[in-house]
Simulated scan of single mutants.
Amino acid sequence: MKRYTRFLFALGLAAGLSGAVLPGAARAAATIDTQASQAFLVDFDTGAVLLDKNADELMPPSSMSKLMTAYMVFDRIDDGRLSLDDKLTVSEKAWRKGGSKMFVEVGNQVRVEDLLRGVIVQSGNDACIVLAEGLAGSEEAFADLMTEKARELGMAKSTFRNSTGWPDPNHLMTARELAILAKRIILDHPTHYHYYAEKEFTWNDIRQGNRNPLLYRNIGADGLKTGHTEDAGYGLTASAVQNGRRLILVVNGLPSMQARADESDRLLSWGFREFDNYALFKAGDTVDEAPVWLGAEETVPLVIPSDLKVTLPRSDRNGMQVAVVYDSPIPAPVPAGQQIAKLRVTWPDGVPVEVPLQAGTDVEQLGPFGRIAASVKFLLLGAP
């Protein structure tokens, strides 16, 4: 048995193949700098990282942490424990809270949907507290639930101490985990995502515009949330779609609102311009045939279990290679579905993507006389 690598094609020869989702993420080397203290740009479909600057560094997320507040409310609505028409009472604590406000009044009852708009569009600290107290009894208890939910979502570093992003030395997130949260909002709660694209909301006769500057620029932005404190600087968790391709961007530590708007625009535009997604295979496609040792069939089809799409720099598309790697020959018996090979995708200066290939059919082992005949053939002619 020997390690066997068979090159199938370069990208230019695979134009007829199509797919949808990459079952593993590629990392593209960043070729752009940014004045943001932390920055993370990722392709929504493939998980390919286009830009990573201190993306795993803990930082104050300021109002970007309200993404988790809204996610918690969306969860309650979608599992039936809460309705958009339910009303929650405004406490004195919520009414007195400073910073950005929805301007709810103490003692009033406010619909959950209005509170959500107050959180998402107006970045209302008061609306966050009303929701937190209504769902968990206290803001502190709600913050504990936020941290618990973060762990469930794979956000191992994020810790919440309040529902608003109000400065606290232990209220911290990372740019990467904000991007994870943004993706989960879009995937898990698609019927509620539209709130993030609303440009204004009026409550108590006070009209406020969405602080997300990208909503007012023609780049396909449809969310998500800004943040700002003196310690954190100006930040934004954003998502945009162009030609059916979605990117998620997180930046933080920028010096001004204008810098936040311009830098976010520049980085997203760069990601759309310099990179693209290339569909290679659909789930169930036979990628190659591998020889079988002592099997009732001479070969077994190598099948890809999931659709395969890769993100790579447009300048590298002609340098991409796709190869199948396995130990040859495959010893029988071979059960259908067994992982027996890998598909490896490489391109200049990129980290290779590897995905499993499975046996497409069962291949039984030869009977005793068949094995004897195969062994004689091996002695005479060598391995298949």
Rank of each mutant, 00 (worst) to 15 (best):
Y4C: 12
F9I: 01
F9G: 00
A10H: 14
A14Q: 10
L22C: 14
P23H: 10
A26M: 14
R27T: 15
T31S: 10
P60N: 09
M64A: 09
V90C: 11
K97A: 13
G98E: 12
G99K: 12
K101E: 04
V104R: 01
N108P: 00
R111Q: 07
S123G: 10
G124A: 12
N125P: 10
E133S: 14
G137E: 14
D144F: 13
E148P: 00
A150E: 04
G154C: 11
M155N: 03
R161V: 08
P169Q: 05
N170S: 10
H171T: 09
M173Y: 07
L178S: 08
H192F: 15
N204V: 12
N210G: 08
R211Y: 05
N212R: 09
Y216C: 04
A221T: 14
T226H: 05
Y234F: 15
V241E: 06
V241Q: 06
Q242L: 06
G244Y: 05
L249T: 09
G253V: 14
M257D: 14
E263P: 00
R266C: 06
N277W: 00
Y278M: 04
T286Q: 12
V287D: 04
P291H: 03
E297P: 00
T299Y: 00
S315R: 13
G319T: 10
Y326K: 03
P329I: 03
Q339A: 14
I340L: 09
A341F: 05
A341W: 02
T346N: 05
E354D: 14
Q365H: 02
Q365M: 01
F369L: 14
L379S: 13
L381H: 10
